[in-house]
Each structure stands twice: as C-alpha cells, then as structure tokens.
Simulated assay, not measured.
Amino acid sequence: MHHRILDRLRCPVCAEPLAETTAGTARALRCPRRHSFDVARQGYVNLLAGRAPHSGDNAEMVAARADFLAAGHYDPVAAALAAKAREIVSRSFPNSDAYPLVVDAGAGTGWYLAAVLAALPDAVGLALDVAKPALRRAARAHPRAAAALADTWQRLPLADDSAAVLVNVFAPRNGAEFHRVLDPAGALLVVTPAADHLAELVDALDLLRVDPAKAERVAGSLSAYFAEESAAEHRARLELSRTEVAALVGMGPSAWHADPARLAERIAALPEPVPVTVAVRLAVHRPR
C-alpha cells in the first residue's frame, strides 16, 4: 500500500493511525491499541469494525459490470468525472508535493477511481466498498490506488480532512462522514442518473424509474454539510447487444428488484442493436 494512503487511514474501532505489519506471507494493518485488520491476498484490507449490513454485489454482477465498463460504454461519464477532479485539484491543491488523496465511496471495481487517477499523476486513491468481489478488482485497478472493505454508512476509516476529492458514483451518500474526511478546500463529486437515463429500457423491461426529484433529494440530503457549487448533465447514445443490456441492467438497482426469469424473457425479445440513452448528472459539492 502506498505510504501516502496508509498515512491517512485510521482504525475503524478507535480512530488511531494504522501501520502495516507482516508475519510470513500474512499482512495486516494494526493500530497502537493492537486492533488488527487483515490484508486479503487479493490486495484489499478489511476495515470493518463489525459485520457489514449487506454483502453488496455478488461475483456475477461484478464480472458483468467490469466487462461492460471495459467495453467503453461509460467512458464519457468517467471522462467528465476525471476532468472535474483535475480542475478541482489544480485550483485548490496546486502543490503536487501534497499528493492529494482521491476517495471513491461505493467504488465497485475501482473503474471510475482509476480514470480519475490517470488524470491526476500526483494523486493517490482509495476505493471503499462493501462487496468483496468488487474490491478484488479495485485493489489492482490502478498502481496508485488501494482498496478497503468498509461500510460507508458508518464512520469512514480515514483521518479528518484527509481527502482532496471524494467521488460518489451511483452510490449511497453519508453527508456527515463525507464532510469529516474531506479537506475544507476539497470537493465532493456526485454522479446520479438524470431523468431520461436508460429511458428506452425502463418501459421495455419494466425497470425502476428515476425519481424526477432525484437532484433535489440528493442536494437536500447533503445540505447540512455541503453546498452545491455547480452541476451539469452528460449524455451518450449507445447501441447495445442483448448481452450488454443484461449487464447494464445488472449494474443498477433493478437487478435487486426484478424477477430474473421475467427480465431475461423481456431482454431476449428486444431487437438488436438496442438503442440506449446514458444520461447522468455530475454535481460538485463544497463543504460548508
């Protein structure tokens, strides 16, 4: 683990600093009070203080997501996110010696974090997620990134004011903790679906609809800790195979709510190629 990341990690039990220890081939992070957290052989560290409330995406869902993202379908989203992160770091953290930390809360496979780090050659990154299959990939998503098993609804295993940029893409938001770990000069970047995101599939596959008041609800949930500085919508038109549609649906909340057999029937009935609109809102939130 990059020492610039380790220096900013904190014990999830007592909030003391962590140091890396090695015994044979086993690695762990340990605090001065002897709380110890194992580093899995796949590279991520388990920084849960107790049991996770859920296990997140399973291996099949994670594999489908990885394949879909690797095909480049969401490249415009990643590019917009990376460009905004670069703008914030260059403006607020001009001293490259600081090695700004980018934290992706609900990082999944670390694909978006890797895109951001590619645009920030002096930054390091930390992927946080509750799904072990995703973290196995996130741990090797980028040479300057690390991955940790953590419940983003609980206290984050990070020091106060330790992150320059906090990324949150289609993931839950913990306003209080995001505010605590974010540098006062930093920014929270939140990507949420716009009203017409995947519109062609919603009726055809009976998917969950995007709440028309989604943007207002997100801003409201963060308003005690953050002020929305700016927001922009980004769109792309895709032409997908049925297999890619199935992977795309599996990446979203409908995967948890739809009947798998019925969903498969409806996807099989779609004419190929399937036109799909990707529409997201990227909002910049500054700490109050």
Rank of each mutant, 00 (worst) to 15 (best):
A66V: 08
D67Q: 15
L69V: 04
L69C: 04
G72W: 13
H73L: 08
Y74T: 07
D75E: 12
D75Y: 11
P76W: 10
P76K: 07
P76Y: 12
V77I: 08
A79F: 07
L81I: 02
A82Q: 02
A83Q: 11
A83D: 08
A85Y: 05
A85F: 02
A85Q: 01
R86W: 10
R86F: 12
I88Q: 04
I88A: 03
V89Q: 06
R91F: 08
R91E: 14
S92F: 01
S92I: 01
P94D: 01
N95S: 03
S96N: 04
S96Q: 06
D97P: 07
D97R: 13
D97H: 11
A98N: 14
A98R: 13
L101E: 05
L101T: 07
D104S: 10
A105P: 07
A105G: 08
G106E: 04
A107V: 01
G108E: 10
G108Q: 03
T109A: 15
G110A: 09
W111P: 09
W111Q: 13
W111N: 11
W111Y: 15
Y112H: 13
L113F: 15
A115T: 11
V116F: 14
L117I: 05
A118N: 15
A119V: 08
A119W: 11
P121L: 00
P121E: 06
D122A: 07
D122Y: 02
A123R: 00
A123Q: 01
G125S: 01
L126D: 05
L126K: 02
A127W: 00
V130W: 04
V130R: 03
P133H: 09
A134C: 05
R136A: 14
R137P: 10
H142Q: 03
A145H: 08
A145P: 07
A146D: 15
A147N: 12
A150N: 05
D151I: 04
W153R: 13
R155G: 15
P157W: 02
A159R: 08
D160T: 08
S162H: 05
A163W: 06
A163Q: 03
A164E: 04
V165Q: 05
N174Q: 11
G175D: 11
A176F: 10
E177L: 14
E177T: 13
H179M: 09
L182I: 03
L182F: 11
L182S: 11
P184S: 09
G186A: 06
A187Q: 10
L188E: 00
L188M: 02
V190D: 05
V190M: 00
T192Y: 00
A194S: 01
A195S: 02
D196S: 11
D196L: 04
D196R: 09
D196Y: 03
H197A: 02
H197G: 10
L198G: 07
E200Y: 14
